[in-house]
Nucleic acid binder design. Structure first.
Lengths: 262, 262
DNA sequence: AAGTGGTCTAGACCACAAC
DNA sequence: TTGTGGTCTAGACCACTTG
């Protein structure tokens, strides 16, 4: 039984005539959304599991089903939960996505990603280091804090296509090994959920065109004058907490980065 | 007074027991959405104008306000209309976007796009040609059909940053001149709305890293070994009809392409 | 048959903008 | 004061899934 900031029989935003700035106000369904979010964040329901039914949540929060519904609508729009008619509402997970890689927008020019199958992974490096200024800033850490750094190559149909450098906060990802990164079947983000309880919910990418240095070119088996996509990604858990910095170099001779605008 | 495929007092999907495949069924609010979309498409309400109030539409379609509301909710989510509390619901337009360029995701590395101000445009070329196979496929035309082709350079703070080639269906854009492309104040897509009645509603982009040829390098005042972002965009009007093919070459030494994932 | 999400309605009230 | 979109409720019924 949770207590609401503003309960249903204790209407929100009573609009005092004090004349000062509007007090922090949010509609009921936003408050409900916040409470559900809190439960998600605290792990009350695990990825892939069903959350309580709308009627149950309505009773628990003492609001109507319609209000819970609108809260869940927004959570579903943000891909935090998934609704399935007749079954229930489920916590999103990177493990059972209809598309294999939720955050990877690189597609083969030949259209169909399914024919490629999953990428082959080769982990080149995985070790604990101290964060430099750039990494620290991206992950909201202090310079010198412990981070786990990894480098790996993803190949499609045997062709090395992506070279990735990954930085993870040392605290949350204590004990991460190269074997885990290499051998886990399925998306790496699913492994993060399962082994570390870290769910990536959102990400931002900055994309540039670059030329590889000698080492990068060698790893991707290309010449140093092959232009590459540099994709710098920061992935966030709940509450906009950054939990991963990833810098990918994508070959785009047989693949392209696809984006939809509206 | 429109007649609905399934009226409110003539319940949809009576679920015949014929045992064959489910007949085409869509909920009432989807039908309403379709009707509103049709009016938008036919220009019953122009970009920037208000559409009728929810109550009016509810009366017109003989459904409840809540049903109209849900239809408009989806249209708003797709950026086809914009709601403004207390004022009404307005047809989206590229002219008065809160961000100046709705489809341009290139931002200065220094964060704030506003300090740059609008881009300086220099039109290099604008002429009618016949569509080759690639252009024809992208625009759903036949090879040899008339298209208007243009090339221009966008500069920020005096630095040539984007080289764009644009292809437009000749029929819809009859009479387009270099002067229009160069002199119109505001987004080019706003000019398309105003002068040609063509509203771009959605777009898809394929992004690659490339090296410029001699001519491209000269126009952008860079060396031919400067890697560039190649952004191939197809923009669509209503009903997924492609109305523009655009290929941009972006310098990414001082700017980056920004994308958000969820 | 029971339980879930999905749709639709009707009515009340709130917040915002314009007159 | 009026009209708009925004919130909230309560109840009915539909569609899908499971037992």
């Amino acid at each position: 039984m949770s207590s609401l900031p503003f309960a249903a029989d204790n209407p929100a935003a009573p609009q005092g005539t004090a004349g000062v700035a509007t007090p922090a106000f949010s509609p009921l369904y936003q408050q409900i959304k916040g409470l559900i979010l809190q439960s998600l964040q605290q792990g009350e329901w695990k990825p892939g599991e069903a959350i309580p039914s709308e009627m149950e949540l309505a009773a628990r929060f003492r609001v109507s089903q319609g209000t819970v519904r609108k809260a869940i609508d927004e959570l579903a729009a943000e891909n935090l939960v998934m609704r399935r008619q007749g079954k229930g509402t489920f916590v999103s997970t990177h493990a059972e996505q209809h598309v294999q890689y939720r955050f990877l927008k690189l597609l083969p020019d030949t259209g169909d990603a399914r024919v490629e199958g999953p990428a082959q992974r080769r982990v080149i490096d995985c070790r604990r280091v101290r964060a430099n200024a750039d990494v620290a800033r991206a992950l909201a850490l202090r310079s010198g804090d412990a981070v786990t750094q990894a480098r790996r190559i993803l190949s499609f149909a045997g062709v090395p296509t992506i070279l990735e450098d990954i930085w993870l906060p040392g605290q949350a990802f204590k004990g991460l090994t190269a074997e885990q990164l290499a051998n886990y079947q399925g998306p790496t983000y699913a492994m993060f959920e399962l082994d570390f309880g870290v769910r990536m919910v959102r990400a931002e990418e900055k994309i540039r065109a670059v030329l590889p240095d000698e080492e990068q070119a060698q790893l991707l088996q290309i010449t140093p004058v092959t232009p590459l996509l540099s994709v710098e990604r920061i992935a966030y858990t709940y509450n906009d907490v950054p939990m991963e910095l990833r810098r990918g170099l994508y070959r785009t001779d047989t693949h392209h980065y696809r984006n939809e605008l509206s």
